[in-house]
Structures are given as structure tokens and as C-alpha cells.
Amino acid sequence: MSTPLTAAQNRFLRGHAHDLKALLQTGGKGVTPAFLAELDEVLERHELVKVKVAAEDREAREALVSEIVGRTGAALVQRIGHVAILYRPSKDKRQIVLPRG
């Protein structure tokens, strides 16, 4: 289940993600178990991640991003072109403290 975010929390996370570089990229094979395992590990370590989605048309990109969000339980903070920003709080060491409301 994805993490629900308020509008203020979404703005806060977009500001934090502005200077981040994309850490992962989906390949021609789409969302593979290896990609999901790597993304799960990166989300646990960083909490806020940019992912580059390699799909040609908009519908394919949206489908891939929806699948990634559904299978990782992360919240989609923003999607611009080929880049999606995902947030999922760490189970062990939370680094990002979200504003209330």
C-alpha cells in the first residue's frame, strides 16, 4: 500500500528532490524482480528517490510508474517526463521528517 501524502508534504518532498540525480533507470525489459529489489534497497536507504523510466510513449510510462508504485508501496511525489520521484519512509532509520498537514 502506498504512503498517503498531504499537499504540504508533497511540496516539501518536491523541494528536497530538486537537486537529486536519478539513481535508477528501468530498461527495455521494464519492471523486473532485480529492478524492484534494487529499488526497494535504495528506498530503504534514501527514502526519496528519482527513477528514470525508459518508455517511449506517455501511456507506457504511466503504466510503468503505476506498476512501480504499486509493487513497492512508495508514494509518487511527482512525475515529469521520463522521471518519477518516489518516497517511502525507511523502516529502520527515518531521515526525512515530513511536515504535518
Rank of each mutant, 00 (worst) to 15 (best):
I85P: 00
L86F: 01
V77H: 01
G15P: 02
V83K: 12
R94M: 11
A8G: 08
R58E: 10
A7M: 07
H82P: 08
F12M: 00
K91Q: 12
A75D: 03
A34I: 11
G30S: 06
K91C: 05
K29I: 03
K93D: 05
E56R: 14
H46A: 09
T72H: 06
S2L: 01
I85L: 06
V77N: 13
R100L: 12
L76D: 11
V65E: 00
T26V: 01
L76E: 13
S90A: 15
P4H: 12
H46Q: 14
R61W: 02
D40G: 02
E67F: 04
P99K: 08
K93H: 09
L39K: 00
V51M: 01
A75N: 05
K91S: 09
E67Y: 04
L64H: 09
L36S: 02
Q25W: 00
I68C: 00
Y87G: 05
V65Y: 02
F35W: 02
L86C: 05
L24K: 06
F35N: 04
R88S: 00
V65P: 01
P89W: 08
R45N: 01
R100P: 03
H82G: 10
L98H: 05
H46G: 01
F35G: 06
D19F: 05
L24V: 08
E67N: 15
Q78P: 07
E56P: 12
A7R: 04
S66T: 12
H16S: 04
R11P: 04
E62Q: 12
R71L: 09
I80D: 12
V83Y: 05
V49F: 06
